[in-house]
């Protein structure tokens, strides 16, 4: 008699061949994100005297394929903060749900109390703990996030957190290619916190638009449709279907083998 109850009533391998149980396997190791799949490119942001301007294009790439052209990568959180997501889009959507839950919970506890609402710096601390915990578990959320808004002290706030949980703050910030292409342009305008006090909203918006244009010229994973948000004490202005203006591709004429000129 067979002493393994699991074997009773099952087809015998020596008669029917080995049973292909691969589709039944549940004992696989849990899968973690080891590399991003559908990705968003740069996010750029700059502080000005009364607030912060942040922008990101509306493209979600699948490798080098421009796969989704209407993905909004700026996310509003209550009336004080806008988050800009670079990196994996599905991880962004997970964080979006996480923040929705957080917002609902916060509203239950103190909806009518403006002063005790989570401010931009609170949200940045929260996100940095989430990101650091996930990297420590070897299960990272593959994003680089900019947090733009108004702090608990009613000051403009801009800070970043990435997939390793690294955090830093600066008068201007940019993720991905933006760190190489947009940051030098923005740092010319706001080299330090002192300079922020002399920058108007119009100046900040103009430089961010200029940066988005430069990024579109040189970043192959970018697009000319973008979202831009202005956060100040008066509230959040967010425009999600902007188009780049005054593009000049004249420089392309001079590139050998690019335009009409061959060789």
């Amino acid at each position: 008699m067979n002493h393994f109850p699991q074997a009773w009533g099952r087809p015998r391998d020596d008669i029917y061949g080995h049973y292909n149980s691969s589709y039944l396997q549940t004992a696989n190791p849990t899968q973690h994100t080891q590399s991003p799949v559908v990705t968003g490119t740069s996010v750029v942001a700059i502080k000005y005297k009364d607030g912060v301007v942040i922008a990101a294009d509306n493209l979600a790439s699948y490798g080098s394929l421009a796969r989704f052209t209407d993905v909004k990568r700026l996310r509003k959180f209550n009336s004080s903060t806008v988050l800009g997501f670079g990196g994996d889009v599905s991880d962004m959507q997970y964080l979006d749900r996480l923040l929705n839950d957080l917002d609902v919970k916060e509203n239950y506890s103190h909806a009518d109390d403006e002063a005790s609402q989570l401010s931009a710096n609170n949200l940045h601390t929260y996100l940095s703990k989430v990101m650091y915990k996930r990297r420590t578990d070897f299960n990272p959320l593959w994003n680089h996030i900019l947090v733009a808004g108004i702090s608990s002290e009613s000051e403009p706030f801009l800070a970043s957190v990435d997939l390793l949980g690294t955090t830093f703050s600066s008068p201007s910030l940019a993720t991905g290619y933006g760190a190489h292409l947009a940051q030098p342009i923005m740092r010319k305008l706001v080299p330090d916190e002192e300079a922020v006090k002399g920058i108007s909203k119009e100046q900040a918006v103009d430089v961010v638009k200029e940066c988005m244009k430069v990024l579109f010229y040189r970043d192959a994973r970018s697009m000319d449709g973008y979202s831009i948000a202005v956060i100040s004490k008066e509230g959040i202005e967010i425009k999600e279907n902007e188009k780049l203006e005054n593009q000049s591709w004249q420089f392309a004429e001079r590139i050998r083998g690019y335009g009409t000129q061959v060789n």
């Binding site: 699991q6 074997a7 099952r10 391998d13 020596d14 080995h18 396997q25 004992a27």
Partner: peptide, 16 residues
């Protein structure tokens, strides 16, 4: 040759 139609030991699929 002599085996069962269920897994009795971890297979190569579940290696780290």
């Amino acid at each position: 040759m002599m085996g069962y139609s269920f897994n009795t030991a971890p297979t190569s699929a579940s290696e780290p």
